[in-house]
Design a protein around this nucleic acid. Structure first.
Length: 621
DNA sequence: CTGCAGTGTCATGGA
DNA sequence: CTTCCATGACACTGC
């Protein structure tokens, strides 16, 4: 680029971490009551906050505070809003994460509705509520909720890592009168309709649409994805499931896209509410599990939007804000309520940075709170989510990870970014690893794991990533492997500067980045090649049909020409006969010299025309 | 066992 | 010079 163009060009630097850093700092200010300019009174409690944050997240606050400019504003929330429901929302406003339990999710939803909290209904409640409460009542119903491989997971409850704990947790949680009440209320669809608001109804409609809507078969678009098509059960495709529900069921859609395993050895987790005698055949529905071959995606903890968020994790890591090193995953034993009280024990936040060395790997299943386990159980037992078990056996886990990797290769993006649940995929993997396998290892908590445990069981794709992740864990990298490849060049170099890495680590990171980039490039290249082949085939077909068309046209013209010659021959004969003329008289040489292109005598073969450049006099019979 | 398709990786060259 | 990207070639795996 010339100097001149440099002067006239406009460049934009966009930081990928700035917004989260700002939000994080605001949250810290809130916790320290710094620069807070509004007090929100809910029931008997009061919360300090920033007007701008509340106003930007809530229509209610926006309306209430727009007319106030002075300091010391106190806003009393209406009676419908409870502290139990408001506090998670406040947390959400500052962290983008909504911590919830089955007990308070309805409360939160109601508060969100009253306060006009944005970005929650569609992305969260519409999806969560029916999942939370429907999955418990009739998981074998034919509605799409049934993962095709639900049966596979079913019998694993006892053997799962959290099996006993989870069931116990579930029972424990259900002892709560509130939970029991809610469960009762919501165990009936009608009751849902009565108690819940319109979102739930909307969701039901959406789910019905999911069943009935015809979807384009994206799997046919490119032969490259034949394997994918096959994995989709030869009938439906990944996109079949995901494509249509663009808006209302965005989250659900994306979760539905999560692959589930077809391996027979994977089992379903039986929640305490699952009817023991569910007909597993009903569960074998291709709808929600187009990726029949796919192994389940580990979801439990981080499926909760208030939990692990790789995005946040990474950005937080980059923001390098060690001062507020959050609770480690090892504190997972504390209750969710305790977390809400200010201890930011979000699992992923253990990835705050190198200054926060507490590893996620210290998270143990038996250290999780009962609420946490229950939420995990709930989320993982959603049939349509095909949520795999945190307790999945090693082969399951390896299948899942490798096949999730395979899913990502479909150039649908590294992960569906719009799904707040799926976004945490990596973190989940990391947690699973941390909780299952790497408790004793020194694995870095920052490693976003796709890998499973037994590299021998990986397929081709997963194998490399498995190895990479294992190496990454050995290297104790302060950021995830995914991040290495996904960052732009500038961000990547910035990240390297931020973290002081050893020579070995640097080499490894560059190697990983190079291979990741090359892997993606190879995919692109192959796809282009296939597209090119496809285009050439289409071109061949087109030319072939054009040739046939021209051949038919030529045949017609030849026939027309023959007829013309026959007609001409008849006229010529008549002329010679009636006038009693010699052929030379009818076809004078002078004329021949003037018009050498005149057709030959009709009695000769008029074809081909080229051979008639010098016409000869016709013979007279 | 063989062939094929799909994939990751490396080497290389161009931008 | 470094980095990125495209692509051919090779090895490997699963079917």
């Amino acid at each position: 680029m010339s100097l001149e163009s440099c002067r006239t060009s406009v460049f934009t630097f966009q930081s990928s971490v700035h917004s989260s850093h700002v939000l994080r700092c605001l949250n810290e200010q809130r916790q320290k009551d710094l620069l807070c300019d509004v007090t929100v009174a809910v029931e008997s409690q009061s919360f300090r906050a920033h007007r701008s944050i509340l106003a930007s997240c809530s229509d209610y606050f926006s309306a209430r505070m727009s007319s106030h400019t002075g300091q010391g504003l106190v806003i009393n929330l209406p009676e419908e809003v409870t502290a139990e429901g408001f506090e998670p929302l406040l947390q959400f406003a500052y962290t983008s994460k909504l911590l919830f339990t089955k007990e308070n999710v309805l409360e939160i939803r109601n508060c969100a509705t009253v306060l006009g909290f944005k970005n929650l209904d569609k992305a969260c409640f519409d999806f969560l509520l029916p999942k939370f409460f429907d999955s418990s009542k009739n998981s074998s119903k034919g509605s799409r909720k049934q993962c095709c491989k639900t049966k596979c997971w079913r019998s694993q409850a006892e053997s799962s890592f959290k099996g006993d704990d989870a069931d116990e947790a579930q029972e424990t949680s259900l002892v709560s009168p509130c939970a029991t009440l809610e469960k009762k209320e919501l165990s009936s669809p009608n009751k849902i309709g009565e108690n819940a608001e319109s979102q739930t109804e909307t969701h039901v409609e959406t789910e019905q649409e999911l069943e009935t809507e015809s979807r384009p078969d994206y799997s046919l678009l490119c032969p490259k994805y034949r394997k994918f098509q096959l994995a989709c059960g030869k009938g439906s495709s990944y996109m079949d499931t995901c494509a249509p529900e663009a808006e209302n069921t965005n989250s659900a859609c994306l979760l539905n896209c999560l692959p589930c395993s077809s391996s027979g050895d994977c089992k379903a987790v039986v929640t305490s509410k699952d009817p023991p005698g569910d007909d597993v055949k009903d569960a074998v529905t291709p709808f929600c599990c187009p990726l029949g071959k796919q192994a389940p995606t580990e979801t439990p903890l981080s499926l909760c939007p208030g939990q692990a968020s790789v995005q946040f994790c990474r950005e937080a890591a980059e923001a390098s804000c060690p001062a507020t090193a959050p609770a480690t995953a090892g504190e997972g034993g504390e209750s969710l309520a305790a977390r809400l009280k200010g201890k930011e024990a979000i699992i992923s936040d253990c990835c705050t940075g190198p200054a926060c060395p507490s590893p996620c790997s210290t998270l143990r299943a038996d250290q999780r709170s009962t609420v946490e386990i229950e939420v995990a159980n709930q989320l993982t037992s959603w049939p349509d989510v095909c949520g795999p078990r945190a307790s999945a056996s090693a082969p399951d886990t390896t299948r899942r990870t490798s096949e999730m990797h395979w899913l990502r290769q479909l150039e649908l993006g590294p992960r569906p970014v719009d799904c707040p649940f799926l976004r945490d995929l990596d973190a989940v993997d990391a947690q699973v690893r941390g909780s299952e396998k790497l408790l004793l290892s020194a694995e870095s908590p920052y490693i976003s794991m796709l890998s499973g445990e037994d590299s021998d069981s990986f397929d081709t794709e997963g194998d490399s990533e498995s190895y990479t992740n294992e190496r990454a864990s050995e290297m104790q990298l302060p950021f995830s492997v995914d991040r290495i490849a996904s960052l732009s060049r500038n961000d990547f170099q910035q990240m390297l500067k931020t973290h002081s890495l050893t020579r070995e680590q640097l080499d490894f990171v560059h190697d990983v980045r190079r291979r990741s980039k090359n892997r993606i490039a190879a995919r692109r290249c192959r796809k282009r090649k296939l597209d090119c082949i496809h285009n050439l085939e289409c071109e061949i077909e087109r030319l072939r049909s054009e040739k046939e068309k021209l051949t038919a046209e030529k045949r017609q013209l030849d026939q027309l020409k023959l007829k013309t010659w026959q007609s001409y021959s008849g006229l010529y004969e008549r002329l010679c006969t009636e006038a009693n003329l010699q052929p030379e008289q009818v076809w004078p040489p002078m004329l021949l010299s003037v018009s050498p292109s005149l057709p030959p005598a009709p009695l000769w073969n008029p074809l081909p025309l080229e051979s008639t450049a010098k016409p000869r006099a016709p013979q007279v019979h």
